[in-house]
């Protein structure tokens, strides 16, 4: 169960050992794996995506089933008690949250945080204007806006997330650069092109066809690109 170096780097200065932890937005369970490896007493891995939930369950089995609870839930309405969690991680969560949901998520994470709780927020800086992958993400966002009325991806500057949490009472601790540059591999690009295509398929053919074609064209012409930065912010609740 390899833990990405981004995760180990983000967690290495946090007191994970023996702590009750929440991975908000579990994805494929990278941070859950990192928290377990660092000695967490319990990890709540929360995701809205049933495929991700099932993947995380398989990933932690058979060794760590008793320390892990995979919860299919929205991070705005966590099935956890007030002040019940000692470490919260949001590793690559916020970029998939639309700006209108930001406040609700920050409040909910704060609600479940116990006094003295540590929070780690890892995410991507906005990409420079010269980045080719911007075009693919822009296309995915256009398809998402047209299909769902909300963007698929938002890259928040570190300062925006920092101010949001500080406004809820969190004390800012530190910022680290996890990746510089960020490697957007062929796999990432294919995943994003597929996401754009899936969103476009909900639209009328006049919109869907050119969007699909453009997504595939961008995926092929870009191939892969290493650009931008991934940051890690850490906070503590007094």
């Amino acid at each position: 169960m390899d833990v990405p170096t981004t995760v180990t780097t983000a967690l290495e200065d946090r007191p994970v050992s023996g702590a009750v932890c929440l991975e908000a937005g579990a994805g494929l369970g990278n941070t859950t794996a990192g928290l377990l490896a660092a000695g967490a007493s319990r990890v709540y891995a929360v995701t809205t995506n049933p495929d991700h939930a099932s993947h995380v369950r398989k990933r932690v089995a058979p060794d760590d089933t008793d320390r892990t609870a995979v919860l299919e839930a929205d991070v705005r309405t966590l099935p956890l008690a007030d002040s019940s969690v000692e470490i919260i991680t949001a590793h690559g969560l916020f970029n998939v949250l639309a700006p209108k949901t930001l406040d609700a998520v920050v409040s909910e994470l704060t609600r479940v945080a116990a006094p003295g709780c540590h929070l780690v927020v890892d995410d991507y800086d906005p990409l420079p204007e010269t980045a080719a992958v911007r075009d693919l993400f822009a296309l995915e966002n256009a398809a998402s806006e047209l299909a769902n009325g909300t963007p698929a991806l938002t890259f928040y500057p570190a300062g925006v997330l920092r101010r949001s949490f500080v406004a809820e009472g969190w004390e800012y601790d530190r910022e680290r650069t996890l990746l510089d540059p960020v490697p957007w591999t062929e796999k990432h690009l294919r995943a994003h092109a597929n996401a754009a295509t899936a969103l476009a398929s909900k639209l009328s053919p006049e919109l869907a066809d050119p969007l699909t074609e453009a997504a595939e064209h961008l995926r092929q012409t870009i191939g892969d690109e290493s650009v931008g930065q991934m940051y890690s912010l850490a906070f503590r609740l007094e």
Binding site: P4, T5, L179, P181, P183, T185, K187, H188, A191
Partner: peptide, 18 residues
């Protein structure tokens, strides 16, 4: 770390690792 991550994804058996 950027290099480690890039190669981890190239090797990864997981098809869609975002």
């Amino acid at each position: 770390r950027s290099l480690i991550e890039r190669l981890r994804h190239e090797e990864s058996p997981v098809p869609e690792q975002l």
